[in-house]
Design a binder for these strands. Structure first.
Lengths: 229, 229
DNA sequence: GAAATAGTGTCTCTAAGACAGTATGCT
DNA sequence: AGCATACTGTCTTAGAGACACTATTTC
């Protein structure tokens, strides 16, 4: 009797890379130059190699497709998508990753197969998206929004040195709300290890110079940051 | 030139099935009867079939291995494990699911290949676990514990009708803490849609009879349930 | 000096946490 | 009668949310 063999599949990673640019939450998208879904928007990603771990594959694909280095960038597994038929090329199981990045330069990944650029998330509505990437983006946005509540991840959207106004803008842009500056400062500064003051001052722009902070060692927020009603 | 083909893998699902029995948090484990890891403890699970979606595979494997029906049971995707070498049989990517169940009968899945039973999670320490299942269990427990905070998932550990004491026991057992009964009742009853009173009373046991409740329509808890310090 | 942004203090109200005694069934 | 469990109310304290003015720079 023949020994039974389990079905086979290809493994891919897809990345939801978010950043805050120009006071808007932006997503890194690929405009597909080849079929399937030629001309549609897609997430950066690709197949996992033999003997390659998933986070390594995510970092490699991001760099290959957009020249963005995953060095100073938060990367976490989001969810796995495996519905039969989600990719017309066959059974492809995609492990999605969520990456949060400080304001990065416009990607230069401009190959024959794909063009990469940042797009404000509110401009995605109505655009044609490849595969089930609309679902993945929705899940990624939801994860990012909820993680800002109970973790210090908002600082990963900021450069190494940042002002409290910049940090507040992150919350306002990601959540689409306005926050009271006084309550926000009180909350952030009273949370042990959220940010650490550097003593430095940012000058050169209009208005009173702002104190610069660096991200602190704390990872979770007790109690959480909340959007006012 | 040959066309490049992406590497192939097998897809599996593994289940972290938790329940509260005998005032203890218990995990559904399989004692493996065959290699690899013969004799070690493992999670129920198996390979995903062709054209099968992941939740369907999870439900099917659970039923095949333990005769437990996944009808009234919360099932959610936990995380995907794909590190090369995690399974000596080859490249196997496992999508783990977390299931929470009310007190279920002892599983009867007792085949030549595996024996299934409930085990209190605190007895897992020091036991030999197959593959990377120790990691999966750790992640599943962490997810379950944190979800009790900000969702109404605790009710999925309870039968259809339950008392507030039973619900409180769920929190106490999963979190390993003691909760003040008065503060707990105030919190639960003041959260719109957490539980709905049925008007029925449970009698027949020692002590004053308790009111019976049913799970309410609310899914998330604002503000969250917290363990007292 | 006008415009722009940073920074600060107080009050109110909600909800968490601590705490003890009464009610109602069972044996 | 005694035991076991269910149920209830108040005080204190922490933190959210609302709110207006002063400080310091650039142009």
């Amino acid at each position: 009797m023949e020994e039974w063999q389990p079905p086979i599949a290809n493994i891919a990673v897809d990345l939801v890379v978010l950043t805050v640019r120009q006071d808007r939450l932006q997503l890194l998208v690929i405009e597909r130059g080849i079929d399937p879904y030629q001309g549609a928007l897609a997430l950066p990603g690709g197949f996992v190699q033999e003997d390659e771990d998933l986070p390594d594959a995510a970092r490699r694909e991001l760099h290959e497709e957009t020249q963005i280095s995953a060095a100073s960038l938060h990367l976490e597994q989001l969810r796995t998508y495996a519905k039969p038929g989600r990719d017309p090329r066959g059974r492809i199981v995609s492990v999605a990753y969520l990456a949060l990045a400080p304001n990065l330069p416009t990607p230069v990944g401009d190959t024959d197969a794909a063009r990469a650029y940042w797009m404000p998330v509110h401009e995605l509505a109505g655009r044609r998206l490849a595969f089930d990437h609309a679902d993945i983006i929705r899940d990624g946005l939801e994860r990012a929004r909820s993680k800002l509540e109970y973790t210090t991840l908002a600082t990963t959207f900021c450069p190494e040195l940042f002002t409290l106004s910049e940090l507040r803008r992150v919350y306002e842009v990601v959540w689409g709300v306005r926050l009271d500056a006084r309550n926000f400062q009180r909350k952030v500064l009273s949370t042990e290890g959220f940010v650490v003051p550097t003593g430095e001052i940012r000058r050169g722009e209009a208005g009173r110079p702002a104190r610069l902070y660096r991200r602190g060692p704390a990872g979770s927020l007790h109690p959480p940051m909340t959007a006012e009603h």
